[in-house]
Design a protein around this nucleic acid. Structure first.
Lengths: 111, 111
DNA sequence: TTGACATATTCCCATATAGGAATATATTGA
DNA sequence: TCAATATATTCCTATATGGGAATATGTCAA
């Protein structure tokens, strides 16, 4: 077997750092392919291809206007990642917050 | 070029659904390779290889005990994903929360 | 030392990229 | 119709998988 397809789900689509950068850009508003090309200094096919991957996992919305296509982030499609990562949030709160850690220790000693 | 290495960062390591499942298991405590094999019903090399990837991005901690190796989740290594995803949380709160949406509409009409 | 157990590593292969270059498609305006 | 603009697609290649099978490494116990 090979790796899972990048178009399988947001986890795979977002693994690529260029696509994360593109997502961050599109979070700021609507962009034309040409505008993305100018903003990120990528080649035009590179932009179109990355947008295509994001479109296939519903991470971007596409709108036609004349010969232009306008893209924007569909942030809701990031929720699966959010939901998955949130189940681990509890684990590092106790580990990193020194006050919390201190309080936990006190509580332990009170038992 | 090819895809980014799975061992480049947690984003790439976590893209694989099997590794996400393994992470969920290890969040529940300490596991031996053999115990993971039994729990997930994977082959032993498969488990060792996936653990190796997770180890290289610091997502698991490894401890030796006799001929056994005991692994557990290093949840803090998930924080980069958490941090990245949190910057988009604001966008779907307004979109999904119907009360929030309702209030936003009211506010609009007041202008 | 030897055998059994626990784990890691190597070898192999089908598969899927990402990016560059070239080209195709679609739309507009003259 | 034709040229220009905007975007998508195809072709190519180097690279990196993930899993199975086989094997190597390490450690214990008798």
């Amino acid at each position: 077997m090979a790796r899972e397809k990048t178009t399988l789900n947001p986890f795979n689509a977002v693994a690529d750092s260029n696509r994360r950068q593109l997502i961050e850009l599109l979070a700021r508003g609507e962009y034309t392919v040409t505008e993305v090309v100018q903003e990120l200094d990528w080649s035009q096919p590179q932009v179109s291809k990355h947008l295509s991957v994001l479109k296939q996992v519903n991470l971007v919305l596409e709108r036609k206007e004349g010969r232009k296509r306008i893209y924007c982030l569909n942030s809701v499609a990031l929720k699966p990642i959010h939901n998955w990562i949130m189940q681990f949030e509890q684990y590092w709160i106790g580990n990193l917050n020194s006050l919390g850690h201190y309080l936990n220790e006190i509580q332990k000693n009170e038992d």
